[in-house]
């Protein structure tokens, strides 16, 4: 079943937004979507980079008042 899960990783220095996303994607179903909230501007680069490498889909990446909203769909 497709669902969208919020990962609020604002203020997360360790393990950090990308590690949170990786951990949650592992136990998700193909087609599930995750919206990561991150206050770390590095996430705007490293999440899309990993998503491409790992073969998932970057649905959206936008900044709103210092918070990055990055939506990823599990593809495999």
């Amino acid at each position: 079943m497709t669902e969208k899960t919020l990962i609020d990783a604002r203020g997360s220095f360790c393990p950090g937004p990308l590690m949170e996303l990786i951990a949650q994607l592992k136990s998700a179903e193909v087609g599930d979507e995750f919206e990561v909230l991150s206050s770390d501007k590095g996430s705007a680069n490293d999440i899309p980079e990993w998503v491409e490498k790992a073969g998932h889909e970057l649905v959206e990446s936008r900044e709103d008042k210092g918070v990055w909203h990055i939506t990823v769909k599990k593809k495999r």
Binding site: F13, C14, G16, L18, M19, E49
Partner: peptide, 10 residues
Amino acid sequence: YPIGRIHSLE
């Protein structure tokens, strides 16, 4: 390491 550097803390 899982992410793009060798530790999660930059």
